[in-house]
């Protein structure tokens, strides 16, 4: 599939391109050829406010800048690896924000919690709901929590096709917490309910908690 420039933007007041946008645009590209593909893992090592290039397989990232993350899809039992690189040049264009899609946030007091969601059923709308939810749980840890970033998901079987429930609940269970480079890193398990809900997977975030 070679290299492709992704149509991403700075959404709302954000000064970075969301990981969910990068994943969604990549998933749409994969779905065009392989609608049965699933996202298995993704890991972002840095953020960017520039454009993003997706490089599939072992192709060289010709003309692309620094690598910002990697992901893996499962296409009919075959691995499809992708690397994301920053695209040198101007900043990504600013685009409209989208309304939130979660409600009834109920923290469990141990770093996890539950919420309800109502989405359009697409990969991007589902991922946006999950990130909104887990981000809110992190923000609820205290008044001085800043720079909350979605950094990775693993062990997933997230369809690239619009196969997600329109309504349901999300539950996050905090499993591992570590402090590295002055940031708190967390790993939580995400469970989803609703018609056609994907199976449990792991999601990682990082944030700064000021003393």
């Amino acid at each position: 599939m070679a290299s492709h420039v992704l149509e991403v933007g700075l959404r709302g007041t954000r000064d970075y391109v969301q990981g969910s946008q990068i994943l969604a645009r990549t998933a749409e590209m994969v779905a065009a050829d392989q609608p049965d593909a699933v996202l298995v893992s993704a890991k972002f090592t840095r953020i960017t406010r520039h454009g993003v290039v997706a490089v599939f397989g072992e192709d060289a990232a010709v003309g692309a800048g620094e690598e910002i993350g990697r992901g893996r899809f499962d296409v009919s039992g075959e691995r499809l690896e992708v690397r994301w690189h920053e695209r040198p040049g101007p900043e990504a264009p600013r685009i409209d924000d989208v309304p939130g899609s979660t409600s009834g946030l109920a923290p469990d007091g141990a770093g996890g919690g539950t919420c309800a969601f109502a989405i359009g059923g697409t990969f991007e709308s589902y991922l946006a709901a999950v990130i909104e939810f887990v981000k809110a749980l992190h923000a609820g840890r205290g008044e001085r929590v800043t720079d909350i970033w979605f950094t990775a998901l693993m062990g997933a079987r997230l369809p690239v096709a619009p196969a997600y429930p329109a309504h349901g609940t999300l539950t996050a269970t905090a499993e591992v917490e570590r402090i590295a480079h002055g940031r708190l890193q967390t790993l939580s398990l995400v469970d989803t309910t609703g018609d056609g809900a994907p199976p449990r997977y792991q999601i990682c975030f990082s944030c700064v908690i000021e003393a």
Partner: peptide
């Protein structure tokens, strides 16, 4: 790396 260490411990 530091992200992998989380998954490893899990």
């Amino acid at each position: 790396d530091s992200l992998d260490s989380m998954t490893f411990l899990f």
